[in-house]
Every structure is written in structure tokens, then in C-alpha cells.
Design a protein around this nucleic acid. Structure first.
Lengths: 190, 190, 190, 190
DNA sequence: AATGAATGAGACTTCATTCAT
DNA sequence: AATGAATGAAGTCTCATTCAT
């Protein structure tokens, strides 16, 4: 990890600093300093400062999670809980970047697009887990709404919280269970 | 609106520009220009640029809504829908400010605090409406979770969307209904 | 002393602040604040900031000391010592102003002139004391040189030291005695 | 002098302008202008304006003079006269700086310290010359006092006068001789 | 006579970017 | 390929001074 290429180190430094102080408030010189590279090198690799942002966004880690990893058929709440935990885990590795997405979405359309797409991926992921955990017995509209709700909740949490790797807060876990129960109750009445 | 005091015009200009380009990317000179006042006046009223942010936050409109205005006892989904619509309405008047809150929360603790408090108010408001619409027959924990979920969803929507005053998008309306139904189903089984 | 006129309070504040931070580094607004008067009043009495300096210089306390007050005929060293002590005493009441003179002499000719005249007064005073203490028996040239030397020493001390009212430092007292002795030895040989 | 490095030219310009108008009253822009460099370069080399002062102080020429250069054993007055002349000579090359020291000593402790140390060096130098010119036959206390007096006189003169390289003014020469004579008379009586 | 809101020039400083090497 | 000196535009903020009241 210490032997990363200079370019890689620059990107890491940029990610950390942008997340900490924001894009505008971070001088390229400080990026160079933190990356341990000469100042000129930053602009050698990324002529314009905004190019750093673009590169960072393109480097976004894939947050796609194979449903089978977290799903236990018949246990919807548990499956969703494991999904969220896994997402949290991946997320925590790029916590900085996520903050960044929220901050700069308004002014850099590259970022805006990435943020939007990320949310879509999140929704699809939740849906996939719901389907895999419940079979196909639920009304599609309900699956849709539940997915949207949970995705929003997760996204909101990530945007707000600076939570580290600690476990799910009870409050959030309750909300998650609420959704799972609601869905399950739709299938039971029969 | 043209006859506002200079100070007021400065705040409005700041709000609009901060929302459009972000705090850091907005020079005080552009604020002065847009407000139609000399550059010095901005710093006469707000010595530091950050004081503009503070003033803006303190000026945040009160988003407290009297439950009785939107509640129809027995119609939970409708009551929540009316609440959200009312919130959207008030929100749209300070849409710029809301974007601002999300953007600058990481770096300005005044903003961070305001954002957090705002969310708490939102949760309480949703809860109050749920209680008023359903009587006291629901399990408190479920009320709590439902309130949290809906508040998150609303907040997320406001943070993300640049929605104008148009009606609730079907998707969101579906999520809202999903929550209402889930709650109501908890009361029925008895 | 609390019931001074506003104009007087402004001058006192200016003197203190100029001495502490220098002329350029002292905003007129801080002078007003320290004087407890509205900002406009400072410029009402002194249209230009430099006018404060002029007024301050014109207000310089008279440092002329009646020789008879300190002289004991036949005791030159003692007479000079008492003179210096008296000068120190008066000086300490306007310590700020004196610093000011040294600082701003280069750029404000009013100040330069005042400083120069002050030194001349000092020389004459020392000479008067020497003459009164020794009768007229000393060679005029020696009186001249001794006066010049002691005046320089006193002036240098005032310019350098932030001494409060404490007694003469031994070092300086030695120098003073050295001069007195030297003079007296010129008279004795006869 | 035209081929000096940019950094050197900046320092020279700063020295000249600070001496002429004072530190506070000299804009960095004027320094750049006089040095013939772009405004940015001044802050490239000296991030803060005060750093110029520090650099200037550190660049102070060494004023230590080898006693043997000016001393003629047995000729105290002549030796001192040559010492002062030599000091004047070295001084005139940094006359501006000396003014500066006096002016800014109150507000910049770097300067204050430099000024103080300079005076100590001066005292030691005078003492060394006295000792070398008279052998060791004088009472140490008298040597001390004479050194202090002459150092003060020299220092005062440098602080006050804008003298160029012209010869010692008669007045000052008289004072110097007065001291020398006084000292010598202490050795003779035996 | 007195006030304090208002002004605008200009100070210091930062920084993305260029360029010669 | 890599560097870091150099640039100048632009930003924030201060302040003496004016002026209407």
C-alpha cells in the first residue's frame, strides 16, 4: 500500500482531502504534499483540478453485491439486514468519496450523474434481495415501494452519518424490520 | 421584493448563489453584484463570509406544521400525503437553502447542527400526524419506525430533487402509501 | 478623569493604541471604541487620522524642569541623578507618546520635529544642571560634551527601555557617575 | 546589482521601502513594483509580509570589527574614533535597515531581539578597543561605564541621524574625546 | 453638534496553471 | 517523464472617509 504508483497516491490524497474539506477548499498543493509527490506532478497527471474529480468518480468501487451472499430464503428481515451491513462495510472504505458525491453533486455534473446512478444501483440491489428472499410471491408494486424506501433510508444514512464500522443502530434496524414485516404481511394473508 | 432593505437583498443573493454554485465557489463580490450593493456593504453587514451562512441558517423558515391542518382521522395515507405536500410547499420557498444545508454540513458546524435539528423536527411532525390520524391504537415502536422511515424519505427527496411545486411523483406516493398501509395493517389484526 | 471631554478621551485612546500597535496598525474605529465614543465622532473632531498625531504632539507635556529643584551645588553626580530621576518620572506618564515619537518620526515630519526639539530641550536641561551644580568653573567645551553624552544616554534609554517607575539601574547610574567624575576632575586640577 | 536574483531584488526593495515609509505603510505591491517582479513572486518567496522583516533581520551584516584594525596602543581617543568611523562605514550600507530596527522593535519581537543583540555587540566592541588601547591598567568599572556610554551615543546617533558617509560631526567627536580623556585621567593620577 | 450607515480603494494572500528545464 | 519556479487573476477583508440625518 506504500508502494502505490504516484498517480494512485495522488488520487487517494485527493479523495481524503476533498472529503475532509471539500473540493474548492482543497488546494492542489496540499494534495501533492499529502501524496508525497512534487507539486508539478499533480498537474502533470491531471491538467485541471476538476479532472481529479472525474478520475475519482470513475474509480468508484463497485458496490454491487451478489444477492446470494446475503440472502437466506424465507428470512427477509435477516437478508436485508445482512445486505445493509455489507453495504455499510463497503461504504466505509470509501466514506470520503461518498461525502464528496453529495457535496459536489450540484456543481459537477459528472458527480451528479454518478450519485444518481449509485442510487439506482442501490434500489435494484434491495429489490433483488427482496425477491430472492421471498420468492416471487409479492405484488410487484409493493416490492418496488419497499425497495425505494429502504434505498432512500440507506442513502440518507450514508449521507448524514459519519458512522464508522459499528453495528447498525437500533433505530435503523427497527425501520428495516418494519419494512420487512410489512412486506411479509402482504404475502401471508392468503 | 425590489424594496427590500440592502441587508435583506444581500441575504437573498447569497442564498441563491450559494445554492447555485456552492459556498466556496461564490465570491462575495458576486453576491454584492447580484444584490445591487457595493462590495463593501456585504462585509459591513457580515464581516466574514461565513457569517452569511450563519445568518441564512438562522433565517430558516419554521417548518412546523399544525397536525390538525392536514390530518383527517381515520385516513392515514391521505393525512401523510397532505403533510408531505405541505412540507414540499414550504420547502420550495427555501429550496436553495436546503440544498445548501446538505452541501455545507460537513464543513460548517452551524449548518450541520441546523440540518440535524431540522430532521428531528421532521420526524416529530410525521409522528404527530400518524398519531392524530390513527388515534393511539398503534404499537409505539411501529409508529417510531414508520416516522423515521418517512422522514428519511422526505429528507432524502428534498436533498436530491430540484423538484418545483409539481405534485408528488407517483413513485414517492407509492412509498408513502406503503408505509401507511403497513401501519394500518398492524392495527387491524386485532 | 472619567469625566473628560469626548475629545480628550479620543486623544488618550489614540495615544495608548498608537503606542501599543503603531499608528498604521491602529484603526480609528478601535480608537473610538476604546474612547467609548461613536465612530463618527473621531472624524468629526479629527477629519484625518494624521490630525490625531499632530494633536498628540502638540499636547506633549512640558518636560522642562527647574534646575533649582534638583540641584545641590557642589554635588554634581547627585544633581544629575535627581534630574534623571525626575525626567524618568515625567516620562513615565507619557511613555506611550515617547515610543510613538520614535516610531513615527521617519514618516511624519511633525513628529520628527517634535522629537528633535525634545532632544534639544534635554541637552539644555542637563547643561543647566551641570552649570548650577558646579558654578561656572568648567571649560565650556567639556560642559557641552558631557551634556550631549548624558542627553543621548537618557534619550537612548527612554527609546529602548519599557522601564516602569523603578529606580535607576545600576549600570546607568554608573555611567552617569562616570560623567560627573570626569567633569569634576576637570575642575580640580587647578 | 541589476543581475541579482529576484529574491535578492525583493529583499532590497523591501529594505529600502520599509526604511522610507515604514513596514505597515509599505504595500507588498509596491515592493514587487520596485523590485521589478510580479506581485505573486513576493508572496511566493515570503508567504507573509512579516517574513520579509525576518529575512531582512537575518541578513543583517556582521558588525563585528577586529580591534587590531583600529587600535593604536596608547592612543585611546584615536582608536575609538577609528572604531566609530568604521562602524559608521559598515552601517551606512544598511542604514535603511537600522532605521527599520528602531521603528519596528515594538511590534515585531524578531526585530526587538535583533536590535537588543546588536547593542550588546556594540558595547563589547567598544570595551575591547578600550582595553586594547590602554592595556589592562584601567579600573574595570570605569571601562564598563565608558563602553556603555559610548555605545549608547553611537546607537543613538545611528537611530537618529540620516547621516551619510560624511565625517564625524564635531559635536560627536567632542563627546568621544571627552570619554577618552576621562578614562585616561583615571590611569594617570597614579 | 453628532452619528453611524455606507462606500470603494486597496491591502494581503492564495492558488490553479504554465513553462523552461 | 518530471519538476518546481514563476505568474497573475481573483478572493476575502479592512478601513479612512463621506454624508444624510
Amino acid at each position: 500500500m506504500t508502494e502505490d504508483s504516484a498517480k494512485e497516491r495522488i488520487l487517494c490524497a485527493a479523495e481524503a482531502l476533498f472529503a475532509e474539506s471539500g473540493f474548492d477548499a482543497t488546494p492542489t498543493s496540499r494534495i501533492a504534499e499529502q501524496a508525497g509527490v512534487p507539486k508539478g506532478l499533480v498537474h502533470y497527471y491531471f491538467r485541471h483540478k476538476a479532472d481529479l474529480l472525474t478520475a475519482l468518480v470513475e474509480r468508484l468501487p463497485d458496490e454491487r453485491i451478489e444477492p446470494s451472499v446475503v440472502v437466506v430464503p424465507g428470512d427477509l428481515a435477516g437478508s436485508l439486514r445482512r445486505l445493509v451491513r455489507e453495504l455499510d462495510h463497503r461504504f466505509s472504505r470509501s466514506l470520503g468519496l461518498s461525502h464528496l458525491l453529495w457535496r459536489e453533486a450540484d456543481t459537477h455534473h459528472v458527480v451528479r450523474d454518478a450519485l444518481h446512478e449509485r442510487f439506482q444501483v442501490l434500489v435494484r440491489q434491495v429489490r433483488a434481495v427482496i425477491l430472492a428472499a421471498t420468492g416471487g410471491v409479492l405484488p410487484p408494486a409493493d416490492v418496488e415501494h419497499a425497495s425505494g424506501l429502504l434505498a432512500r433510508a440507506v442513502s440518507h444514512r450514508h449521507a448524514t452519518a459519519r458512522h464508522s464500522d459499528d453495528d447498525l443502530p437500533a433505530e435503523f434496524d427497527g425501520e428495516l424490520t418494519f419494512i420487512a414485516d410489512a412486506l411479509v404481511s402482504k404475502t401471508a394473508p392468503a
